[in-house]
Amino acid sequence: MTSITHHIPDQLLLDYASGRMTEAFALVVAAHVSLCDDCRARLSAHEMTGGAVLEAHDSAPLSDRLRHSVLSQLDDAVDDAPVYQRSSIFPAPVMEALKGRPPKWKPLGRGVRQSILKHGKSGSVRLLYIPPGLDMPDHSHGGLELTLVLQGAFSDEGGRFGVGDVEVADHEVEHKPVAAKGEACICLAATDAALKFNAFIPKLFQPIFRI
């Protein structure tokens, strides 16, 4: 996918690698990395650094019991966790969040639909379906929001976002997104818990719902 022009910023890749990032955002990062070799390489570099930090870290002595316990379990049979594959526009981590089933779309008005994948106190992540050509009034963001395009495209002040592109929006960004004509735009969007007011609807699309 050489056409990807909007990537995951380095500090977010580090937050993902170190485990600081919450599940909702981590799903968007994992989905983008599945589509983007550039970010995969940058993430690998962080993981190599993490590995070097682990190697150089102070040790804590292990009990003899532990060594024995681990070595005695090597022949145990274990059930393999299900492995999900990419399916049409959805990368494997999204299929995993969908548990291998197609999204359950709920209408939100003006042809917009959503399918919530995860919603918790640390944030939420959903799929959004935006009809082609739909435009939205000017508005600004509350917390951090990551939006990954899986089908179609949208444009705003930040540029044009096509398949594989990620928009990183925080409270400083003013938005006037317009879905491209042609194919409907399907996005994976994560928001953080800072969006207490209407946490269910991402800021990017709030104006449509007149809230």
């Binding site: 485990g19 919450t22 994992a30 989905a31 990395v33 993981e47 590995g51 990368p91 981590p93």
Partner: peptide, 21 residues
Amino acid sequence: YQIARNRQIDILRKENRPMPE
């Protein structure tokens, strides 16, 4: 390092970390 981060997220935050393909 990656496996250990996953386990730690699971233990401390009871969250799963989605992994790339």
